[in-house]
Amino acid sequence: MFTKRRHFLRQIITLSSYTTGLIFSKVSLGNWLASDFSKQAIDATLKQQFGDQILLTTPKIKLKLPRVAENGSVVPITITSSIDNIDTVYIFAEKNPVPFIAKFSIAPELETFIGARFKMKETCDVIVVVHADGQYYQTRQRVKVTLGGCGG
């Protein structure tokens, strides 16, 4: 009886890993989830997105960000990376009310290059996480926001 149950469990595990593999091989991100964009601290957001996965810090992700953003409502960012097989890119702003800015899926036919413009409430780190070959990599860069020219 125990062997049967073990066999059954093993089958479930194989099946589920197979289906998750299928889902991740597609470009689609699935449904837009309001829970991704909830108002919470950055730690909670990262935990929600990546669970206990290790986010390796790497110099292979290059961010083009202004060191000082005069207007926090328009901060341009360009993300490039030399890591192969990147399928998803996440952008977070550490101290925004909603730290999750956006996530992008990337097809193999696209170069790892994303340009966007986002909002920042105050001076903080911008965190970019990429997913490639089952591993998460992160990099962060500080952006100083001087809103209306009265900031330090």
Binding site: V27, W32, F37, P76, A93, V98, F100, S105, L110
Partner: peptide
Amino acid sequence: SHNGKLMSECHLGFGISKNPFFSFKLKS
């Protein structure tokens, strides 16, 4: 999408600026 094939899907929140701008690079 490019020639009917999905290249990128983006999930955005309101952290993206007003009048959003995006750029992508197609390999070929």
